[in-house]
Simulated scan of single mutants.
Amino acid sequence: MPEVTLRQMRYFVAIVDLGSVTAAAAACHVSQGAASMAVADLEKAVGVTLLVRSRSRKVAPTAAGVEFAAHARTVLEQVEEAQEAVRDQGGAIRGLLRVGVSLTMSPRVVPPLIEHFTTEHPLVELSFVEGAPDALQEQLRAGRLDLALLYSWQTDPDLEQIQIASVRLHVMLPAGHRLADQDSVWLRDIVDEPAVLLDVPPTAERMITTVESAGLAIQVGWRSANMDTIRTIVGRGLGYSFANSIPATGATFDGHKVVYKPVADKTPANAIMAVVPAGQKLPRRVKVAINALKTTEPQR
């Protein structure tokens, strides 16, 4: 019976991730023919079809292919970890670190993470994907990410969560707002004005629930998936919004100003979380990333 090899699994996973044999072959530095042959041999070894090929030369995994790819990623990661344990003996960390991060949190955590690995662990190849929480967690389950950075109220319970830092909900107001000089803002003093909500599920829905839990009704004026757009709308005095990650400056895209005030009401606890697959041993580079973020992130 033909045997499954690491090379076959590596090429197969690359094809699944990149969507074509050509792209995967280039990424693996082999010929297209070698990549195709490796996958053909893999399918013979496992006895099932793993990829569906189309006339456009795009490929997609079958149901069996999706399941096999998840297992193959785990095997490849464990082999890499074993190699690192023998080779490094506690020394240099190397390998690929794939991080997913929610869109609003990205400016807060990605730059310091890049700086840390560039300075302290230059042999680690850091890549990151910005996106919606649901999509990032699906990529984590599929093995396409090693780590996701999300707010706790965005996370799914089937994944392991490690707290990086606590956060506090803030109201975003135009600089000239009647409440802009207060130390904090009660929701009852703002909810009659139009709210500009972040249209990245489940953020808007969670904010509506938070306000309703205080016995109030939010008046949704507009929604946007872009925080710069939201800040600019608020800066023009057209509404207010909410934020957990507070920029160092209140300048908007068009030169207006916004201010951030803590919500005075008691709201559900929230935190920046490192989300990883449940029940798996974490690679050293993932542990280093988590520890680096814990060190650089102040509790707010």
Rank of each mutant, 00 (worst) to 15 (best):
G131D: 07
L50P: 01
L136W: 01
V16W: 04
S184Q: 15
T49C: 12
Q83P: 00
I114G: 00
H256N: 13
G131L: 10
I208C: 12
H116R: 09
T155Y: 04
M172V: 15
A40I: 09
S127N: 09
L282Y: 03
T49W: 08
A27R: 06
Q280D: 12
L113W: 06
L216N: 06
I218D: 02
F242K: 08
P298G: 06
D156V: 15
R94I: 04
P247C: 05
S56E: 12
A165P: 02
L97G: 00
E212Y: 05
V59M: 11
S31E: 02
V75L: 15
P174S: 03
G255D: 09
K58G: 10
P133M: 05
M172C: 10
T295N: 14
R236E: 14
E43N: 06
K261Y: 10
P122K: 02
T22N: 07
E193R: 08
M227A: 11
L97I: 11
A85Q: 14
S224F: 03
A35T: 05
L42K: 04
A25F: 04
T232Q: 14
G279E: 12
L169N: 14
T118L: 02
R55N: 12
T203K: 00
L96C: 14
G33N: 08
W222V: 04
K281E: 11
R55E: 15
K44S: 11
A248Y: 06
D228T: 10
V52W: 05
A70T: 13
G90R: 07
R55P: 06
T22A: 13
T229H: 14
A60T: 13
